[in-house]
Amino acid sequence: MLRDVTLGRFYDNDSFLCRLDPRTKLLGLIIAIIGIFLCSSIVSCSFTLACVIALMYLSEVPLRHIFRGMRPFFILLAVVAAMNIFLVPDGVFRSVLICLRVIEVVLVSNLLCLSTRPRSVASGVQTSLGWMKRFKVPVNDIATIVSVALTFVPLLADEAKRIRDAQISRGADFSKGSLFRRAKASLAIIVPVFVSAIQRSEDLAVAMDCRLYGCTEPTKLHPLSYSYEDAAAYICIFTYLCIVILMKVGRL
């Protein structure tokens, strides 16, 4: 499961989605998720699904890569589906719909992570929330936290894998026994990973201090700029939102 973390694993290609401004993509993600949760019928769900598939095509990321991040969610989905089927009237239909929606949301968020560098996500957040600086919200720090978190997720995932292998080589067993036993055994991974995360963060804080973090209002090497592709993307996002709302109003 640890191998499957796509968070922060940027897939470097020069696709349309990759080239878009991070602000466009962040807004697009929010609108897409709102749209997906507004859908409650087969027709509207198929529409959002079609949009997600179109995005996957535009990202040019291999399907294998996109779906790798999905594996952990299948357990969650199975539980949700089972509960719906047995507890809710008309459960089969509802559970299919819910699963579809969750899958779509995860796919869209995965696509954002795969198509955007963590530092661009950060500058997107920083620029979009720039107006909050007037209310003394530490926007720069929030953006840095987001980008550092995104860059360190794959690093910690790799570390967790290494520690897991080390514990297995010393005779630990994470795959046998009751759920409780397994949860208890996984402490042998969680605690060392946690300790190392704290050590890493301390080092990183020192490195950032040394490199003058917080010295003055920072500038950007690549200031964000919109292109005509972003205009096209905004039109698409707006159209998508309108269609979803119309379908909701028209009970389609």
């Binding site: 950032m208 490199r211 003058l212 973090y213 917080g214 010295c215 003055t216 209002e217 920072p218 500038t219 950007k220 090497l221 690549h222 200031p223």
Partner: peptide, 10 residues
């Protein structure tokens, strides 16, 4: 990173 923190022009 350090240059951005110093507020230099791109």
């Amino acid at each position: 990173f350090s240059l951005e923190n110093m507020g230099l022009l791109p």
